[in-house]
Amino acid sequence: MITTLIADDHPMFRKGLRALLTTLPEVELVGEATDGNEAVRLARELRPRLILLDLHMPGGDGLTAIRRLTAEPDAPYILVVTMFEDDDSVFAALRAGARGYVLKDTDDEEMARAILAVGNGEAIFSAAVAGRIAAFFAGRPAEPFPGLTPSERNVLHLMSRGRSNDAIAAELHLSSKTVRNYVSNVFAKLHVRSRAEAIARARDEGL
């Protein structure tokens, strides 16, 4: 049996995964976690073979949880199940030790295939993610933070130049609310919690 732990902070998504797992006779659900720290604690207690884990959760993010989990003796296999398909998220998860990476809008058939594959020690990625990995290894030049939209990139560029949200709004002819939304998106996609961290990341990449 592929003993499995779900780690996701969205109850409805956990419910959907739970329902899918009941259709797979090879899989046994042994627990559910709502944040990264709880995922690590339950993994140590329940010793699942497979963890279906979101990258963005409160109380300990998914990337930190992956690093901690893969450092354990008899480490579980990690299948990332998330909404984010940007290069930063994908490669950070793989470097941390994830064996698979699929998006939350993946259909049930593909999700089941990914669960069984990673649960049996294989590596698997959704089509969109596989395309990004192929492009990376083909050596295609990439601009920093390819997961950002052009508008988000412009906002990050101006943030790195010390502009306030109001100044950015005036310069780009946007509302303050729109700029705040772009800043929130940048934080989520870059996996940072503050403006200072975002600016540091941007400057490191020469943006």
Rank of each mutant, 00 (worst) to 15 (best):
R49N: 07
D108L: 10
Y77L: 05
T106C: 08
I78N: 07
A96C: 03
T34M: 10
P48V: 01
D108E: 14
E85Q: 13
L69M: 04
A96V: 06
G62P: 03
P76M: 05
E85K: 11
G100C: 11
A65Q: 07
I78W: 06
R99Y: 14
D87K: 06
I51L: 01
D87S: 09
G60P: 12
A96H: 02
L103W: 11
L69I: 01
L53I: 08
F84K: 11
L94I: 15
A65W: 12
R68G: 00
D105F: 12
I51F: 01
T82M: 08
E110G: 10
D61C: 07
D108Q: 13
V102Q: 08
T64N: 14
R67W: 02
D35P: 06
G60C: 07
N37P: 07
Y101L: 04
R95A: 13
V30A: 02
P58C: 10
L79Y: 06
D108S: 13
G100R: 06
E32M: 07
A65K: 06
M57W: 09
G62V: 07
L79E: 01
R47C: 11
E45L: 05
A96D: 01
L69N: 01
V81R: 00
I78C: 02
L52M: 04
D87N: 10
L42I: 04
R95G: 12
A33L: 03
L63T: 13
I51V: 04
P76Q: 03
R68H: 10
E72A: 08
D87A: 15
D74N: 14
A33N: 00
R44M: 13
D54L: 01
D105L: 09
R95T: 11
L29M: 14
A65N: 09
P76K: 00
R44T: 09
G36E: 03
T106W: 06
R68I: 02
F91P: 04
M83V: 11
G62M: 08
D107G: 07
D87W: 09
L55Q: 08
M83G: 08
G100V: 09
L53M: 14
T82I: 10
D61G: 12
V81K: 02
M57K: 09
Y77Q: 15
R49K: 13
E45C: 05
H56S: 15
T82G: 10
P48W: 02
A39N: 04
M83C: 08
E109T: 13
R67E: 08
L50M: 02
D107A: 04
E72Q: 10
D86Q: 15
